[in-house]
Write a protein that binds this DNA or RNA. Structure first.
Length: 294
DNA sequence: AAGATTGTTGCTTA
DNA sequence: TTAAGCAACAATCT
């Protein structure tokens, strides 16, 4: 479940690893949600040089030198972008480093979940793996991207346009649950199930509260919680709950810092009296402490 | 072996 | 018209 901190980790790592690299080949092993068709993609991507990798919410955006084409990648729930440099190939899986690398991704690459492979002229490779095939790769234009961002993506939690005033505005007269609203990418980009439960716990707000019922002090607390959690999770390179791996095949380090998520029936870390409850809300597993959150 | 897992889209209902 | 709710998607794990 890559959310903002996980996708940001991948983005910044890949920026260091493959910037200025020339794509020598692009092969598609499973074409579902990969657009356009593999022949067109191969011919259009070949020889493009990666200029910059950007991110909006959970969406990765690749820009190329001397081209107006833009490649977007969404990992959805189980997508991975695993990078392998030529040393792994040369080592043939015998060096210590490559052994732990192969172990972390569960065997050799490509594996049965590999859906596409970028090859670079430097012999580096980037594997797009996706167990559940919900993720997508699309080659689009600048116009397409602008339309997409405008329609589906609200402000980033760490940007200036995201502030207490903005939260007040989007909470006004809203009768859905606060959890549903925080998950809505067109309102805020990048929060997913794990971090929404975490920020609501830290802000001491119950997930099924109606946004319109929150007072100024609660909104302020919520804003601060979002800021704090997202920054810290980025610092710890994200949370690995089930399938998430960074571009080197390593897990995120935030799991041990989670305060409520995945702690069903465990003692609340705040009051140390109540057990963490788990209910279904917005179709999602939702964790909270009835004593600490109200 | 049925049910849960979750990000996003798009349909249905209110 | 718009908001809210929910099934669908796919594969795996319990």
């Amino acid at each position: 479940m890559p959310e903002l901190p996980e996708v940001e980790t991948i983005r910044s790592d890949l920026n260091n690893l493959i910037i200025s690299n020339r794509i020598s080949d692009f092969s598609v092993l499973d074409f579902k949600n990969i657009w356009p068709d593999k022949k067109t993609l191969k011919s259009k991507l070949k020889n493009l040089v990666i200029k910059k990798i950007d991110r909006k919410g959970k969406l990765l955006i690749f820009y190329f030198s001397n081209s107006s084409l833009i490649l977007i990648i969404h990992l959805k729930m189980t997508g991975q972008l695993i990078y392998q440099d030529k040393n792994h190939l040369l080592a043939g899986g015998h060096s210590l480093a490559s052994q732990s690398f192969f172990q972390s991704i569960g065997g050799k690459l490509p594996n049965k979940h590999t859906r596409a492979i970028f090859s670079f002229s430097s012999f580096k490779k980037l594997y797009f793996n996706d167990i559940r095939k919900f993720g997508y790769i699309k080659l689009i234009t600048k116009n397409d991207l602008e339309g997409l961002l405008k329609k589906f993506y609200g402000p980033e939690p760490l940007s200036d346009d995201f502030n207490v005033l903005y939260l007040k505005k989007i909470f006004k007269n809203k009768k859905t649950s606060i959890k549903a609203l925080l998950l809505d990418q067109s309102k805020i980009s990048g929060l997913g199930n794990i971090y929404v439960d975490e920020v609501l716990f830290i802000a001491k707000i119950l997930p099924y509260r109606k946004p319109e019922s929150l007072n100024d002090s609660e909104i302020k607390k919520l804003y601060n919680a979002i800021n704090k959690v997202i920054k810290k999770a980025i610092k710890y390179r994200g949370t690995t709950f089930s399938n998430y791996l960074d571009s080197s095949g390593k897990k995120g380090n935030y799991y041990n810092l989670l305060k409520v998520y995945d702690r069903k029936d465990k003692l609340c870390l705040n009051c140390k009296k109540e057990k963490v409850r788990k209910v279904r809300l917005v179709g999602r597993g939702t964790y909270y402490c009835l004593s600490c959150q109200s």
